[in-house]
């Protein structure tokens, strides 16, 4: 670590040009996640936890909108089609399968966005992504529960962040 010992220098608040690129990729990932949840919901997944899946979709939509608020006209407003197409078959009508696929997706997003927070220069973007990462980590736990996993026997599924190689969430 090379941080200075004092925080007296005023930090950069607004996203830099490089930040905007990173945040744009993050927005496309969020929109792909939203659409993947919507695909599973439309196919009939959810069961007793349908309302939770609907809420998770709404969360990702909110994240995309918040990134638009931050970077304005630079926001792509389009989903990451490569990510969506690579996973949409897993987000089908079967609740456990869809929940496990979503769990893997959320884990990858948490890993990618944690890296992103460490690379953003502007504190506005870093603070926003931090507030998103905190909740996306919680998503992983909710999805492991929906998938019927044991909080004791399968504890690492709930608590350990592991990126899934099949997703193309931005690694910044």
């Amino acid at each position: 670590m090379t941080a200075s010992k004092t925080n007296s220098a005023p930090p950069v608040k607004r996203p830099t040009a490089a930040d905007v690129e990173l945040l744009s990729a993050a927005q496309s990932t969020e929109l792909a996640a939203r659409d993947l949840y919507n695909s599973a919901i439309a196919a009939g997944a959810g069961g007793n936890h349908l309302a939770s899946l609907v809420a998770l979709s709404a969360h990702h939509d909110a994240y995309a909108q918040s990134i638009s608020s931050l970077i304005g006209a630079d926001a792509p407003q389009t989903r990451d089609d490569e990510l969506f197409n690579s996973l949409v078959a897993d987000f089908g009508s079967e609740t456990v399968g869809a929940a496990l696929a979503a769990h893997g997706l959320e884990n990858s997003i948490v890993a990618a966005h944690t890296t992103l927070v460490g690379e953003l220069v502007g504190t506005d973007g870093a603070a926003l992504m931090a507030s998103i990462v905190i909740t996306e980590a919680r998503h992983c736990v909710a999805l492991a529960t929906i998938a019927g996993k044991s909080a004791v026997a399968d504890i690492d599924l709930f608590l350990v962040t592991t990126a899934v190689a099949t997703t193309s969430a931005p690694s910044a």
Binding site: M1, T2, A3, S4, T6, N7, A9, P11, T114, T115, V117, G118, E119, L120, V121, T123, D124, A126, A127, A130, V133, I134, T161
Partner: peptide, 15 residues
């Protein structure tokens, strides 16, 4: 996160 001066530290903290 917005209080830490070093971006790398921010990544460690949110991790």
């Amino acid at each position: 996160i917005p209080k830490l001066s070093d971006p790398a530290l921010r990544g460690s903290a949110i991790g």
